[in-house]
């Protein structure tokens, strides 16, 4: 697999959120603002990087029957490290994200990368995969957080974009997460279809000209 393909798959073509619809719990829970989404995404990316690297390095040594408990232990260890580090050095953010940091351990996307990618590829490819998938996840969280923050409070990253905005509370509340995500998925499908049509149309016009 070419490295560029890993990157493209992780960030867009096979995006954890937009395409695979995995990891919905942290997505819907913390994306009340773009900033929350960003930190949650980066924390997840860090865990993913650690677990992918370690799983890839020991992939030959783990007996196939006990691989899942091994992966879970490794992932849980990295989640706890990130949890403690954020508590120590990013206390304010830690208090906001609260329960969702330890819950990274049950994000099936991370387990999925360990089992589906890192256990079959070398450490370099696995690290690239972790950064790409984590980047795609972060992108999705920031986008959704930004959309909800903008629609709900007229702010982006805590900055008032529209003066005297009539708050649309619904988008900050849990139902708004589902509605905003649905609208974004619809938008992405339209965009992808349009791109596909354009790609299909391009050779035709070339042929016609010829």
């Amino acid at each position: 697999m070419k490295r560029m393909d890993i990157v493209r798959d992780g960030i867009w073509r096979n995006n954890t959120i937009f395409v695979q619809l995995l990891g919905m719990c942290p997505l819907l829970g913390v994306t009340t603002s773009a900033e929350n989404g960003l930190w949650m995404g980066l924390a997840t990316m860090l865990v993913l990087l650690g677990s992918n690297l370690v799983v890839s390095l020991i992939r030959g040594a783990i007996p196939v029957h006990v691989r899942i408990p091994c992966y879970i232990t490794i992932i849980a260890a990295f989640v706890t490290v990130v949890d403690m580090a954020m508590n120590a050095w990013m206390h304010e953010t830690y208090l906001v994200l609260g329960l969702f940091i330890p819950l990274i351990v049950v994000n099936c996307a991370i387990m999925g990368r360990a089992e589906g990618f890192a256990s079959k590829h070398g450490p370099v490819a696995s690290a690239i995969d972790a950064l790409s998938v984590g980047g795609g996840f972060t992108l999705a969280l920031v986008l959704l957080g930004g959309v909800r923050e903008f629609l709900g409070k007229g702010e982006i990253f805590g900055l008032q974009v529209i003066g005297s905005y009539p708050d649309m509370l619904m988008f900050v509340l849990p139902p708004g997460a589902f509605i905003a995500l649905g609208m974004m998925l619809a938008g992405i499908n339209v965009l992808n279809r349009w791109l596909e049509q354009r790609r299909a149309a391009a050779p035709e016009t070339a042929r016609e000209r010829a």
Binding site: I58, V66, C70, T80, A85, A88, W89
Partner: peptide, 28 residues
């Protein structure tokens, strides 16, 4: 294999705890 993974993970956690305990108390 399980034992080794558990032991190494525990060591990692203990080390992190050593480094973060004081900053966490300070932040609180």
């Amino acid at each position: 294999a399980l034992l080794l993974v558990a032991v190494v993970s525990t060591m990692l956690l203990a080390t992190t705890d050593m480094f973060t305990r004081e900053p966490i108390a300070k932040a609180q």
